[in-house]
Design a protein around this nucleic acid. Structure first.
Lengths: 198, 198
DNA sequence: CGGCGTTTTGAGAGAGCTCAACATCGGTGG
DNA sequence: CCACCGATGTTGAGCTCTCTCAAAACGCCG
């Protein structure tokens, strides 16, 4: 997953603990580099003229943050810890120098970004599906494993509901309906799509 | 916008016209490179066990397609023209060689991908907002220009509705409501947010 | 002038959201 | 070992909001 993280870069990572509400960086601050969220939740936002927060993104464990800051002199939004959190800073100069020297690392980084773009587009497409039923089916179909039928559910169903953009109630109901309709089978942390009806 | 497109790469671009319904590439085909959609609409999709299309993305003019294919031996989805379309192929070998030789170009490409990631995350965040009113306001606030109040509307309001994930009726109504509430002013192809009320 | 697409407004229905109650499970501490 | 507690999982009922279907006004271009 993080094969762009060469030993050099990894060694340069600087961990930092944040209290809930603490500011990681603000708009127009000079960019230090980009971050990886290790634990907790960090949100990216802008503040509009009326002082309201306009949220750009909510990052949780494992996600990277502000990749674009590698190529910009200043940050373009604020980053604030929503919960207590631990982040790791990858200093811009070191990362860029590594990419210059090591084109394999650069390629791996590009590949990671390209995969993210792909994945995000897919999730966006998913949100165009209005029916909860179809949205869940879309997700299951796309995330079915080797046998093209079994999906491992990562984390709780509540988390899944959030990823799908549904309330957890709606997800529970939809799964229950699909199960009684015989379209899926449910297991502890797996869901299996019914055999295709031809 | 396309500053990663060095003359070398640009010269290597191969245009190709597609009829509606024509296949550009299929899953497991060997990757030739990635594409830019010049005109028309191309959709990326997978086919599930029951033979149904599962759409991953719908690309239109100016968008790039299958960036991740640069780093993979085979395509992981099908690409089919929805309308008559013209695409431009940037051959993998040439692009990668250029990135190896020209680290500025590589950096520009990374920067482009990073910006895309940022933008897609923002759009995804936007879709988490359920109320049409708040979603429109979120969009307007984030896209306000220099003066932080005026938004140029690209294309028709119908297009905007699609980008926002609303029906055009819902958007028209919401804009009308916001206008009568005095929260926005509407012009030919501009919308201005009302002054902040403190 | 006659079409075609966008913009606008109306009315109705359905689907998911909200609020609420309860079950279940895992962990914690007495 | 059991009682307690919090978070997840589940089901119910009502409501709101957007979608859908419909129709008409408007603007643009041939």
């Amino acid at each position: 997953m993080a094969d762009w993280l060469t030993p050099t870069v990894k060694a340069a990572g600087i961990e930092r603990a944040l209290k809930a509400g603490q500011v990681l960086f603000r708009t127009s601050h000079r960019t230090a580099g980009f971050y990886e969220v290790m634990t907790g939740i960090v949100r990216l936002l802008r503040v509009d003229q009326a002082g309201r927060e306009v949220v750009l993104h909510v990052a949780t464990g494992g996600e990277t943050l502000a990749e674009a800051s590698l190529f910009a002199p200043t940050y373009h939004c604020d980053a604030i810890a929503t919960t207590d959190a631990v982040v790791r800073l990858y200093p811009k100069a070191i990362v860029l120098a590594e990419f210059e020297r090591n084109s394999k690392a650069a390629q791996a980084f590009m590949a990671m970004l390209a995969r993210q773009v792909m994945h995000l587009r897919t999730r966006l497409e998913q949100r165009n599906i209005h029916s909860a039923r179809d949205r869940v089916l879309h997700y299951l179909t796309l995330n079915a494993g080797e046998d093209t039928r079994t999906v491992m559910v990562p984390g709780t169903l509540k988390d899944l509901a959030a990823e799908l953009g549904l309330t957890h109630e709606a997800l529970y109901r939809t799964l229950a309906d699909l199960a009684t309709a015989g379209e899926i089978e449910r297991f502890k942390s797996k869901i299996r799509l019914a055999k295709l009806r031809v």
